[in-house]
Design a protein around this nucleic acid. Structure first.
Lengths: 350, 350
DNA sequence: GTCAGCCCCCAAAGCGCTTTGGATGCGGCG
DNA sequence: CGCCGCATCCAAAGCGCTTTGGGGGCTGAC
C-alpha cells in the first residue's frame, strides 16, 4: 500500500493524505482522523527512500566500526554502546546503519556515506590522540559526535566521554592510601586517546604521592584476557613485584586474576586490583558486592547520550556543539585491600 | 555532484552517463572511460535513495537485535557476528541497518521494515525452539537467513548453524573417556534452540555410556560469569560433587574457573571443564595452547556465511533456500584431565 | 545512390513522497 | 448584495536516479 493507493481508497488527493499524516494544519480534524484510521488499518508506512528523496533527509545515522586486519579485534564495548544508541534512534524514528571498515579505508567510507547521502550524521568511535577523521567530517559537513575525545584537536566538536583521567587518578589514590607503593598499570593501546588520559591520571596521582612510575610496571596493549594474564604473570615474577594493578578493562582484569590465583596468591590480600568497568551487560562485575574494585561507567548510557547529542545537532544545524563528560565513580569490591607487609613475591615463594 | 550536473559537465545525457557507470553495453568504450574518469575526479556517487527508488531495491539488509528489558543483556557474540556479516555486505555494496528492539516488538518492527522498504532482507538472530518470526517473515515475503535453527519449524528456510548436538556429544564423550561420571551441564536458556540441541547432545552421549544425567547437575540460564561462578560453587559444595563441567560459553567458563580456584582446586586436575568457544575476537581462548578444552566455532565466520546466503537469496528470489551446518571441532586445552580418584569434594576437604 | 542495420546517444516517464501555488466553497462583514 | 478571508482540499513540480522507446548518423551491401 502506497500513498497513491491510500489516497485513491479514501477519495482524497495525495497532498491531503500526506498532510494529514504529517500533522500539517491545513486539513480538517475529521479528515485527519479518517486518514489516520485508514492508514492504520492498511498498515501504511511511507517508503523511506521516497520520503528521503523528497525531504533530503536520510533519517539514518551511521556508525563506522574499525576492524583492523592486523589484530582483527572487535571492540567488546561496541555491542553495549550500539544498544544504548539504538534505543535513542528508535525512539526518534531514526535508523542506524553500520559499516565495518578496515582501518585505512575510513576516510573513503566517510566520503562515500556523504556522497551517497546514506546518513544524516555519524558517531565516531575510538578516537586517537591525533584524529584526522574529525577534520575530515567537519570538512564534509556531516554532523557527528565522538565517543571519546581527541587531545590534539583544537577546534570544538561534539563528544561524550568518561572522565578517564580523574577516574584513574582516584583509583591510584585509593591504592596509595591502602599502602601500595609498587603499582602496575595495564593500559589500553596508547594511540587511543582514552589510554593517554588514563595514564595521565595514574601518573598525576603517583607523583603527587611521590611514588615512582616504573617502566617495567607499565604496559599498553590491546585489552585481552591473555594480555592481562601474561603481563601480571611476568610482573609478579619480578624480584620486586607490584602489590597492586590498575587495569583498563574487566577482560584484562580477569586475566590478571588468573595469573594471581595461579601463583597461589589471593586477590585483595596479596595483590590488589582496580579495573575500569564499562558495565557491559554480559560481563557484570559480580553480583551484590562487586568482584573487582572498579571505576564504573556505563558505556550503554554513553551510547544513549551520544546518539541524543547527534540527533540534536542534526535537528538544529547551526546550533552549539554540545559535549558531555561522564564521571566514573569508584565502586568498592573484594579485589582491593591493604598492601601486604611482606612483598607479594616473598609470599609466593613461601 | 549529482547525475544531472555530471552529465551537463560532460556534455552527455543523464541516460548515457548512468549507463556508462553501470556497465551497460550500449555506450562506446571511449565514452565510458571519459565518464568514469570524470566521475572519479568529482567523487561522484549515485544517491542511494534515488537509486533505490528507481530500482526498487534498498541495497541494505537488516539485523534486528532483541533487547529484553527484563534482563537487558546484549548478546556478547553479537559484535563478532555483525563484524563477519559486515565484511560480506561491504564487499557486495550493501549497507547494514540495525534495529534494537524490545522483545515483544519484534513483529511490529519486521512489518515496518517491510512496509517502509528499508531493507531487502533480514538476518534473524537468536531463534527459539518455536519461532513465530520465521512464519511472519515468510508471510511478509522478505528474504531472510537465520543464525541458528528452529526445531519446531517444519517448512524449509535458510539458516547457518553450528552442529551443537554433535559438538556437545563429542565433548561429553571425551569427558566420559577421561573417566568422569558425574558431569554437570551449564547450558544457556532453554527457550533458545541451540541450548536444546546442546542438551540433546549431552544426554545422548551420557545415556550411550549409561551415565546418569542428574537434575541437580543441569542448569540453563543466561550466560554470564556470575552464573558460572555461582552454579559451580554450589555444585562443588554438594555431598557428591561433579568432577567435570560442560559449559555453554567462555564467559560462563570463566566463572566456573573462578569457583574452582576459589575452592583451592585445580582446573584440569581436580575439576575438568569443556566449554563452547565462539572464538570471539576479544576473548580468545588463551594463546598457543588453549586455556579451555573447547568446542570451537567462529561466530564471525558464521556471520560471513549467513550474510552470503542472504545476499544470494536476494539476488535470485526464486532460488533454493540454502543452509549451512558448521562443525565445531574439539580443541584440547589445559582444563581437562583424567577424573580424580578421590572425588573433588573430598579433595577440597583435605 | 539508397537503404537496411548498427552504434551511440537522448528525451521523457516513472519510482513514492513532499511541497508549492493555487482552486473551491463557505460564512461574515460592510 | 458583494467581496474578503478562511478553511479545505487538489494538481503538479521536483527530489536523483533507472529505463523504455526512440532516433540520428555512419557503414556496408546492393
Amino acid at each position: 500500500m502506497n500513498l497513491k493507493e491510500l489516497a485513491a481508497h479514501l477519495g482524497l488527493s495525495q497532498t491531503t493524505v500526506s498532510r494529514a499524516l504529517n500533522g500539517y494544519p491545513e486539513v480538517a480534524e475529521a479528515t485527519r482522523k479518517r486518514v489516520a484510521d485508514a492508514a492504520e488499518q492498511h498498515n501504511y508506512r511511507p517508503n523511506t527512500r521516497a520520503k528521503g528523496l523528497a525531504t533530503g533527509r536520510a533519517m539514518a545515522v551511521g556508525h563506522v566500526i574499525p576492524t583492523s586486519t592486523r589484530h582483527e579485534m572487535v571492540n567488546p564495548i561496541f555491542g553495549d554502546f550500539i544498544s544504548g544508541a539504538g534505543e535513542t534512534y528508535a525512539r526518534n524514528g531514526y535508523d542506524m546503519v553500520l559499516s565495518m571498515v578496515e582501518d585505512g579505508d575510513q576516510a573513503r567510507v566517510y566520503r562515500e556515506l556523504k556522497a551517497k547521502g546514506t546518513v544524516d550524521g555519524l558517531i565516531l568511535h575510538g578516537p586517537a590522540t591525533a584524529e584526522p577523521r574529525i577534520g575530515l567530517l567537519r570538512e564534509l559537513g556531516l554532523p557527528f559526535c565522538v565517543h571519546g575525545r581527541s587531545t590534539d584537536e583544537r577546534a570544538p566538536y561534539s563528544w561524550v566521554d568518561v572522565n578517564n583521567k580523574s577516574a584513574f587518578e582516584r583509583a591510584t589514590e585509593l591504592l596509595a592510601d591502602l599502602g601500595h607503593r609498587r603499582i602496575a598499570l595495564l593500559n589500553g593501546l596508547e594511540a587511543m586517546d582514552f589510554a593517554r588520559r588514563r595514564r595521565a591520571g595514574f601518573e598525576a596521582a603517583m607523583s603527587a604521592r611521590a611514588l615512582p612510575t616504573l617502566a617495567e610496571l607499565m604496559r599498553s596493549q590491546e585489552m585481552t584476557e591473555t594480555y592481562g594474564f601474561e603481563s601480571a604473570s611476568e610482573m609478579l615474577a619480578l624480584p620486586d613485584p607490584p602489590t597492586a594493578f590498575l587495569v583498563s578493562s574487566m577482560i584484562v582484569a580477569i586475566g590478571v586474576r588468573r595469573a594471581v590465583e595461579e601463583l597461589g596468591l589471593s586477590l585483595g590480600t596479596d595483590v590488589s586490583v582496580i579495573t575500569h568497568d564499562d558495565d557491559l551487560s554480559y560481563l557484570r562485575n559480580g553480583g551484590e558486592v562487586p568482584l573487582f574494585t572498579a571505576t564504573r561507567s556505563s558505556v550503554r548510557e554513553a551510547g544513549r547520550i551520544a546518539a541524543q547529542l547527534l540527533l540534536d545537532q542534526i535537528a538544529s544545524p547551526g546550533g552549539p556543539l554540545r559535549t558531555r563528560l561522564l564521571e566514573a565513580p569508584l565502586v568498592h569490591g573484594t579485589s582491593t585491600g591493604p598492601a601486604p607487609r611482606a612483598t607479594a613475591g616473598a609470599k609466593a615463594a613461601e
